[in-house]
Design a protein around this nucleic acid. Structure first.
Lengths: 217, 217
DNA sequence: TATCTTAATGAACAATTGTTCATGAATGGA
DNA sequence: TCCATTCATGAACAATTGTTCATTAAGATA
């Protein structure tokens, strides 16, 4: 047998460590990183702040761990398990399922908190910006571009700039998601915005699809 | 003559007061409100922190003043001086001028800082959320809806849901503006995103306009 | 049982925070 | 000139910050 280099041990310790991360995420996403104290985090867990330092060597390390988790989070893996080669054949329905993933993000507390953390710290934290840009924006826009390109090749949609199309499809989804998270903060109704996710896809597809010549021959 | 109830005096004091606001905005938008100390602000101005309290009774009051200024800022008055009744007649060009206003926001340091402040504090500050939603989002979407409605009535664009159209037109502009401000932080090139403002209008108008029957009669 | 590791505690720390206040210089109006 | 106002200063404050550390309890391993 060989020794284990990983800092934290399994069994019980990791449970506390995960609870720290979970509690920190909740607080960071609500009050912001700078306004959240280690006493806040410990207090919310029912332990003393000194206990945190058995699991993380600083407050910063907690944030960094949360940021690292971002890369494997659902909010940056929209296309994840999809077979990108054959995807275009599904036509409109693949767009709808992407929009649905966006929509559902706001309904999982963990994902919503990650999104709020990202939005609040993105201007101050270069690493978050990097992850957002690389894994979230660029990655998805690139895949969308490829998707639209294939659809054009196969005469499913009108010919135009695939990259522009990708941005035009992506940006409303992002915006609507932000709107939903803002409305929820004030406990306002989100239904009208939530319905925009599907309306966006309907509208978007109607605009780009190639009209079928219904009864010409 | 009657006495003046306003707290601050004119002449010299107001100049310092304005400098405090300007310096605070710069720092708040860069480091965030919570991470900016009154010593930071005073230091950046070359005065001592106690001097600030001759002009504002707290750090919070500085932020509140900046927020109040938001309502009269350029970033919430896209439609401002336009005659909304006759606006629709301009067709595509009115959309282009709106997009240009968005685009130019990022090029004025003051406006960009206001936008960044808004984005960073919107999750923590209910007042900012209120201003954003009421003066920025609702106001502009409402006016855009009216605009598209009139265009439909006059057979300039295809008939559809004006409110959806307004959101579809607005959200990419907002998103692209955010992208620009993020790229600038890392001193990356913004040209490809900046060009999206105009491409968005071109694409959008092409999609909604009613095709002119060129040579049928 | 004895030993080692893990993790929680309470107390303390140095630094930093927002804010107050008495003092004094400068300014402008009477 | 005298007076009142405006505003910057330096020193100080109480509170809060992130972090450290010796101690201890609990659990696993031998």
């Amino acid at each position: 047998m060989h020794t284990n280099d990983v800092i934290s041990s399994p069994s019980k310790g990791s449970k506390t460590k995960e609870k720290i991360l979970k509690t920190s995420l909740k607080l960071f996403s609500t009050k912001g990183y700078a306004s959240t104290t280690v006493r806040d985090i410990a207090g919310a867990m029912g332990i003393k702040q000194s206990a945190l330092y058995n699991h993380f060597k600083s407050k910063d390390e907690i944030l960094e761990t949360l940021i690292s988790d971002l890369t494997s989070s659902a909010i940056v893996t929209i296309f994840e398990d999809k077979d990108s080669q054959e995807l275009y054949k599904q036509g409109k329905s693949v767009l709808m399922s992407i929009a649905t993933i966006f929509k559902l993000l706001s309904f999982d507390a963990q994902n919503e908190a990650l999104f709020k953390l990202l939005m609040q710290e993105i201007y101050r934290n270069e690493r978050i910006r990097e992850i957002y840009n690389e894994y979230f924006y660029q990655e998805n826009v690139k895949k969308l571009s490829g998707l639209f390109f294939m659809m054009m090749q196969n005469d499913m949609i009108k010919s135009s700039d695939p990259l522009l199309l990708a941005n035009e499809f992506f940006s409303p989804l992002f915006f609507y998601q932000m709107q939903v998270s803002l409305l929820k903060l004030d406990k306002k109704s989100t239904s009208s915005v939530v319905s925009l996710f599907e309306k966006h896809v309907d509208y978007f597809w109607d605009m780009i699809k190639i009209e079928k010549q219904t009864t010409l021959f």
